[in-house]
């Protein structure tokens, strides 16, 4: 069964390269291309592809808001961000908007096809450049305790240490100790990375993080 894909990017040269990447794969079918946000939306509504590769910055409408529109109108389309922005906060924003994947445009052809297959199966794919992975080490991280998992979920929702402390009725210091331990276990350098890695490793589900 082939996976139907559309590609939305305002830059023709980039589009050409990515088109060739996709067309090389037998199980992927590129059913349309769009050069701006409005065109992309028409294409999504008309073709209802399995996966929509969306650039974040596009004329007309940006990729994040397109992803949110797809989520809100409950179309059977999986949005994946394909972008030059390597900021983790964009990853967070995209995931909140309903994207299931985040890929940088410098992606290799193999990674791209793998990402598309993973999200089409219902998985989540985050580019290694925005959330460093320790995949090759076979998910060799120490499991989070129940409390740590809880703290991470609260932190991922954007609550400050003070608010988490108040909600869980523990001291702010304890929250920080938990966070430090979480970073250590996941190999993360900060809150956002911890959240992305936890998602990537399946420690927490996307639905738990995004309400």
């Amino acid at each position: 069964m082939t996976i139907r894909v559309i590609l939305a990017d305002d830059h023709p040269l980039t589009r050409a390269g990515l088109r060739d990447y996709i067309e090389k794969e037998k199980d992927l079918e590129l059913v349309g291309e769009a050069s701006d946000g409005l065109e992309a939306w028409e294409l999504i509504v008309r073709e209802k592809p399995d996966v929509a590769l969306l650039d974040i910055r596009m004329p007309g409408e940006n990729g994040v808001s397109l992803a949110r529109k797809i989520k809100d109108s409950k179309l059977p389309v999986i949005p994946v961000m394909l972008t030059s922005f390597d900021a983790q906060q964009y990853v967070v924003a995209s995931l909140r908007a309903g994207a299931r994947g985040y890929i940088l445009k410098t992606v290799t052809p193999d990674e791209l096809s793998r990402a598309i297959r993973i999200v089409a199966r219902g998985g989540l794919y985050l580019d290694g450049e925005v959330a460093r992975s320790i995949e090759d080490e076979d998910l060799a991280f120490e499991a989070l305790s129940a409390r740590e998992r809880e703290v991470l979920l609260y932190a991922a929702r954007g609550l400050s240490s003070k608010e988490i402390a108040a909600d869980l009725i523990i001291s702010e210091r304890t929250v920080q100790t938990h966070l430090a331990s979480i970073y250590d276990k996941l190999g993360a350098r900060n809150k956002t990375e911890a959240m992305l890695l936890a998602l990537k490793y399946g420690v927490v589900a996307l639905e738990e993080l995004i309400e």
């Binding site: 830059h11 980039t14 060739d20």
Partner: peptide
């Protein structure tokens, strides 16, 4: 920079990779 050179060089990378393949 983002819309011009950055995209151009990204496209260049794609082309190089395709050529390699």
């Amino acid at each position: 920079i983002h819309d011009g050179p950055l995209q151009d060089v990204t496209a260049l990378i794609h082309q190089i990779r395709l050529a390699t393949m």
